[in-house]
Design a protein around this nucleic acid. Structure first.
Length: 898
RNA sequence: GGGCGAUUAGCUCAGUUGGUUCAGAGUACUACGUUGACAUCGUAGGGGUCACAGGUUCAAGUCCUGUAUCGCCCACCA
C-alpha cells in the first residue's frame, strides 16, 4: 500500500456519490428478473405525484425502502423495487391550469383534447423531476420497470377493473350529496376532505307559521342554503313542538311554504330543537329528505354561485355574498333573531383548501362493504402485518364504518370513465319517454354501435376516475396485470409496503381490497408505517412556512449517506420525527469517522496480503472484537427482521465508533508498529471487521461503503474477502457461532475497565497529560497481574502506565483504584495529597456502601430469596460479595493513610 | 363526542421478556488534550424523583387503574 498519502483527511461525498450510482446502474445491479433458484423480495414504491418535488418525507420513506431492498439483495434474494409516478388528477390539472392562466388561457378555450395534449407535454417535461431527485439519494430501484399510472398498461388495468366491478354490481351511478369543491369544480371522496374548526356563527332565523301569527325559530350556520329548504324538522318526542308537526311554515325570502316534519335525527338539545331541512345541500338533510320524500332543490351551481332556483335577487351571487345579503334581508325584515358565536368543523378541499360545498350531483360509486370485509379479515388474521401494530385498530375502525367510494371526478386529467351513452336514443328519450332510452354501455373499449339500437352516435362519460382508482391496483398493475405473465407470478404478492400512516385509507386499505378481489391474494405481507417528518418545533413541513429544507441542498452540503443515516437515526418507529438540516452532522461525522478509520487501516497494510486466520492464532483482543462484531451481525439481522431500523442504525453506530474505533483500533496500535506475526493477525482482523461492518452498513449508507470497498479491492493481495464486483452484490454478513468467545474476551474487558479507571483518576487528580507513572498491583489472583503485564504496551499508550510492580509494602505517595479483586496503586510522587486522596476514597466508600445496602436489603428479604429466580439470587449474592470486598480494600487503604 | 399516541438529562430521543449492570445515547455544557486515522477528533466530568397519584409484585421507566398536559385520527349535530 503506497498511495495512502493521497487519501484526504476529510471525507468528501460529492464526486463519489454520482460515480458509484452510475456504476451500479451500468452494471445492471438494480435490475431484477425471474430467477428460479432465488426467492423474490418485492417492494412497490408509493408512487409520488408527478407534480411533486423531493421532500424529507420522501427521503425517509425511500431510504427505508432502499435499506430493505439492499439488505435482501445482499442476503441472496431477487430484490425487486418497482418505481413509478402517479398522475395525481386534481393536483396536476391545477398546476397546468395555473400555467395556462398566466398566458391568458383556460382549459375551456383549449378544448378537452388540446388540454390533455398540454397535460402530457407538461408531464414529459416536468413529470420526472422527483424520479431524478430520488437517484441522488441512492435508491436502488429497478428503473427498467418504471411505471406511470396513466401508462397504456395501467390504464388498461383500470378499465378492466371498472368493467369487472360494474358487472359484479359493485359499481353504481347515482344522484347523491357529495363533497364538492367549487374551485376545482369536481366531486371529492370523503377522504379528500380535510376538516378544520372555523369560528363561525349560528344564526337564529324566524320562520312564520302559515295562517298564524306564530313562528318557529331555526338555527343555521349556512343561511344561504335556506333558499333550498323543503321542510322544517323537529324530534317526534319533543313535547314542545308536538302540535307543529305537519303544519306549514313560510320560508322567508321566498314565496314557498314548507311542511314541519318529525325525524329522530333532530337533537332537541341543540339550538332551538328545530332544524331547517335542505336535502340538496346537506348530507343529513338529504337522508331526511329521502325518508320523508321531500323535494330536492339545488340552489347553487357547480361554482358555488346561486342558480336559477334561488329568488331572483340572489341569482348569480357567490355563496358568501349571498349569505351576507340574506342576513341583511332577514335583519331588515326582523326575521333574524340572534347571532351566536359557534365553532364548527368545516370541510376543505385537500388540494386547494377551498371550503367544500355539499352538492347534489350524479356520480359513480364503488360499493365498499363487500370489499372491506375480506380486507379486514386478512389484517386481523395477520396475513398482513402492520408495523407498528397499533395501526390495525385505526384500520379496523375505518373498515367497519366504511362508506361507498365516490370515484367520479369532473376533471379532464385522468382515466376517463369507460361508460358510453347512445346519443340518439337519449335525445329521443327526452321527447318520447324512458322506454326508448338505451342503457349505458360499460365497455373497455369505445363501442362502434349501440348494442340496443345499433345507433352509432355514441359518447363517452365526460368524467374521469379518482386518482386512487388507478393507484389501488399498483402492486399488480405494475407487474403487467391483467395479462398473465411470469413476473406477476414470481414477484406477486409483494413483501413490504413502506408508507406514511396518512394514506392508510386512501391507498393501503384500498390496495388490500383490490389485491384480494382481483389477484385473490394479499398485495403485500408487511406494512411499515413511517414517521411523519416535522420541523424542529414539531410543525409540519410546508412550503408556506418555509420550514422545509430541500433535500438536494442537504445532500449537496452533507452527502446522501449522511442524510440517509441521520434521518433513520432520528426517526423513532412510528412517531413523528423532528428534523433540521444541522442534525445531518451526525451522519456526516460518522462518514468522516469511517473514512479516517479506513485511512488509518490502509496506512498499516503495507505488504499485507489477506488470508483467513485460524481461531488458534487469534489474540484475545482479536477474539473480543470478532465476538462483538458477530453479535452485531446477529442483532442487525434481528432488528431488521423486526422492522426496527432505528435500532439497527444505533447498533452499527455504537459498534463502529465505541467498540471498533475507540477500543480495537487503539488496542492494536502497539502490535501494528512491530514486525511480528501477530501484526499480520491484527491486520487481518482489522480488515475483516472493517469490511464486515461496511457490509452491514451498506443498506443505510451505500455510497461511502462502496467507495471504501472498492478502495480496499484496489489494494494488492488476496481478494477472498472482496471477491464481489461491488459491495451491493456481496453477501450480507451472517452470525458465526465459531467466532463467539465468551471466556477469552474477559481479560480484554478487564483491561478496558482498568484503563477507564486510571483515566478517570488522572482527570480527577489533574495529572499532567504526558506524565507516565508506575502502578503497583495488590491481588490474590496472580493471573490478573500477568494479564496487566501482558497488556503493558496498551496501558502505556492508553493510560500512560510505564511500569507494573507487585505489592510489597504500603505505597505512600499514591492513589488507589479498587477493581475486580485488585488494588491498583498509582504512584504519583509530588502530585498526591493525602488529605485529598482520603476524601476521594471516602466518597468512593460511601457510594459502595449505598450499593451494598441496597443489595443486602434484597438478600435479607426472605420473600426475595424464596420468590426470585435462583440465578437472580446468586447474582445478587455475587455482587454483594464483590462490593463487600471492594469496601474492605478501600477501608484498609484509608487506615494506612492515617 | 369517541379512539390512538406521547410525557425519561437544557434539547432530540433509546430503553425487548419487570431483576447491582438501567437510569442511557446523540447534542449542548465544563475541564484537559493537536499523541502520525479522525478537532467533522480524543479523554474525563456535571446534569434526570423516568409527568402526577394510586395499585399489582420479593422487585416497577418497564405491568394495571386514574389524573394532567401535548399531539394526531375519526365523528351527521343544524
Amino acid at each position: 500500500m503506497t498511495e495512502h498519502m493521497e487519501i484526504q483527511k476529510i471525507y468528501n461525498p460529492k464526486t463519489i456519490e454520482s460515480k458509484w450510482y452510475k456504476f451500479w446502474e451500468e452494471k445492471g445491479f438494480f435490475h431484477a428478473k425471474v430467477t428460479r433458484n432465488k426467492k423474490p423480495y418485492t417492494i412497490v414504491i408509493p408512487p409520488p405525484n408527478i407534480t411533486g418535488i423531493l421532500t424529507l418525507g420522501h427521503v425517509l420513506n425511500n431510504t427505508i425502502q432502499d435499506i430493505f431492498i439492499r439488505w435482501k439483495r445482499m442476503a441472496g434474494y431477487e430484490a425487486c423495487w418497482i418505481p413509478g409516478t402517479d398522475h395525481a388528477g386534481i393536483a396536476t390539472q391545477n398546476v397546468v391550469e395555473k400555467s395556462l392562466a398566466e398566458k391568458g388561457l383556460t382549459k375551456e378555450k383549449l378544448g378537452r383534447e388540446e388540454f390533455i395534449k398540454k397535460m402530457w407535454e407538461w408531464k414529459e417535461q416536468y413529470g420526472g423531476t422527483i424520479i431524478k431527485q430520488l437517484k441522488y439519494l441512492g435508491t436502488s430501484c429497478d428503473w427498467t420497470r418504471e411505471r406511470f399510472t396513466m401508462d397504456e398498461g395501467l390504464s388498461f388495468a383500470v378499465r378492466r377493473v371498472f368493467v369487472e366491478l360494474y358487472n359484479k354490481g359493485l359499481i353504481y351511478k347515482g344522484k347523491y350529496i357529495v363533497n364538492w369543491c367549487p374551485r376545482c369544480r369536481t366531486a371529492l371522496s370523503d377522504d379528500e376532505v380535510e376538516y378544520r374548526d372555523h369560528d363561525g356563527n349560528l344564526w337564529y332565523v324566524k320562520y312564520p307559521i302559515a295562517d298564524s301569527s306564530d313562528s318557529v325559530t331555526v338555527a343555521t350556520t349556512r343561511p344561504e342554503t335556506m333558499l333550498g329548504d323543503t321542510a322544517v324538522a323537529v324530534n317526534p318526542s319533543d313535547e314542545r313542538y308536538k302540535d307543529l308537526i305537519n303544519k306549514e311554515v313560510v320560508l322567508p325570502l321566498t314565496d314557498r311554504k314548507i311542511r314541519v316534519i318529525a325525524d329522530n335525527f333532530v337533537d332537541p338539545q341543540f339550538g332551538t330543537g328545530i332544524v331547517k331541512v335542505t336535502p340538496a345541500h346537506d348530507p343529513n338533510d338529504f337522508q331526511i329528505g329521502l325518508r320523508h320524500n321531500l323535494r330536492q332543490i339545488t340552489v347553487m351551481d357547480e361554482t358555488g354561485k346561486m342558480n336559477e332556483n334561488a329568488p331572483e335577487q340572489y341569482r348569480g351571487l357567490d355563496r358568501y355574498e349571498c349569505r351576507k345579503k340574506i342576513l341583511d334581508d332577514l335583519e331588515s325584515q326582523g326575521l333574524l333573531l340572534k347571532t351566536e358565536k359557534h365553532t364548527n368543523a368545516v370541510g376543505h378541499c385537500y388540494r386547494c383548501n377551498t371550503v367544500i360545498e355539499p352538492y347534489l350531483s350524479d356520480q359513480w360509486f364503488v360499493k365498499m362493504k363487500p370489499l372491506a370485509q375480506k380486507a379486514l379479515e386478512v389484517v386481523l388474521d395477520k396475513k398482513i402485518k402492520f408495523y407498528p401494530e397499533r395501526w390495525v385498530k385505526v384500520y379496523q375502525h375505518w373498515m367497519e364504518n366504511i362508506r361507498d367510494w365516490c370515484i367520479s371526478r369532473q376533471l379532464w386529467w385522468g382515466h376517463r370513465i369507460p361508460v358510453y351513452y347512445c346519443v340518439a336514443s337519449n335525445a329521443k328519450s327526452s321527447k318520447e319517454g324512458e322506454n326508448t332510452k338505451c342503457p349505458p354501455i360499460v365497455s373497455m373499449e369505445h363501442p362502434d354501435r349501440c348494442p340496443n339500437c345499433s345507433g352509432t352516435d355514441i359518447v363517452q362519460d365526460s368524467d374521469v376516475l379518482d386518482t386512487w382508482f388507478s393507484s389501488w391496483l399498483w402492486p399488480f398493475s405494475t407487474l403487467g396485470w391483467p395479462k398473465e405473465n411470469e413476473d406477476l407470478k414470481y414477484f406477486y404478492p409483494t413483501n413490504t409496503l413502506v408508507t406514511g400512516p396518512d394514506i392508510i385509507f386512501f391507498w393501503v386499505a384500498r390496495m388490500i381490497m383490490s389485491g384480494l378481489e382481483f389477484m385473490d391474494d394479499v398485495p403485500f405481507r408487511d406494512v411499515y408505517f413511517t414517521s411523519i417528518v416535522r420541523d424542529i418545533k414539531g410543525r409540519k413541513m410546508s412550503k408556506s412556512l418555509g420550514n422545509s429544507p430541500d433535500p438536494l441542498d442537504i445532500i449537496d452540503e452533507y452527502g446522501a449517506d449522511a442524510l440517509r443515516f441521520t434521518i433513520v437515526y432520528l426517526a423513532p418507529t412510528g412517531q413523528d420525527v423532528l428534523f433540521s438540516k444541522e442534525k445531518c452532522e451526525i451522519g456526516r461525522n460518522l462518514c468522516n469517522k469511517i473514512w479516517n478509520a479506513t485511512r488509518y487501516i490502509l496506512m498499516n497494510l503495507e505488504g499485507f496480503s489477506y488470508s483467513p486466520v485460524e481461531n488458534s492464532k487469534l489474540a484475545n483482543m482479536d477474539k473480543w472484537i470478532l465476538n462483538e462484531y458477530n453479535l452485531l451481525a446477529k442483532n442487525v439481522h434481528s432488528s431488521l427482521e423486526r422492522f426496527n431500523i432505528n435500532e439497527t442504525v444505533r447498533l452499527i453506530y455504537d459498534f463502529f465508533w465505541s467498540k471498533f474505533c475507540d477500543w480495537y483500533i487503539e488496542l492494536t496500535k502497539p502490535k501494528l508498529s512491530t514486525d511480528s506475526p501477530e501484526k499480520v493477525v491484527c491486520q487481518t482482523v482489522l480488515v475483516e471487521v472493517l469490511v464486515g461492518t461496511l457490509k452491514l452498513l451498506h443498506p443505510i449508507m451505500p455510497f461511502i461503503t462502496e467507495e471504501i470497498y472498492q478502495l480496499l479491492k484496489s489494494q494488492p493481495g488476496d481478494k477472498n474477502l472482496l471477491s464481489a464486483e461491488s459491495i451491493m452484490v456481496s453477501p450480507f454478513p451472517e452470525f458465526d457461532e465459531k467466532k463467539i468467545f465468551p471466556e477469552d474476551i474477559k481479560e480484554v474487558e478487564l483491561i478496558i475497565a482498568v484503563i477507564q479507571n486510571i483515566r478517570t483518576l488522572r482527570t480527577e487528580l489533574n495529572v499532567p497529560p504526558k506524565k507516565l507513572f508506575e502502578i503497583i498491583v495488590r491481588t490474590n489472583e496472580e493471573n490478573k497481574i500477568s494479564i496487566l503485564e501482558k497488556y503493558l504496551p496498551n496501558l502505556r499508550l492508553m493510560a500512560k502506565v510505564d511500569k507494573i510492580s507487585r505489592y510489597s509494602q504500603k505505597p505512600l505517595h499514591s492513589a488507589v483504584i479498587v477493581l475486580s479483586g485488585m488494588e491498583i496503586y498509582v504512584i504519583l510522587e509530588g502530585i498526591i495529597d493525602i488529605e485529598k486522596e482520603t476524601a476521594r476514597l471516602k466518597k468512593t466508600e460511601e457510594e459502595l456502601n449505598a450499593r451494598l445496602r441496597s443489595l443486602n436489603s434484597k438478600l435479607e428479604n426472605e420473600k426475595f430469596i424464596t420468590n426470585a429466580p435462583k440465578d437472580q439470587v446468586e447474582k445478587i449474592k455475587l455482587y454483594s460479595k464483590e462490593t463487600q470486598e471492594n469496601i474492605t480494600r478501600i477501608r484498609n487503604r484509608l487506615a494506612s493513610l492515617q
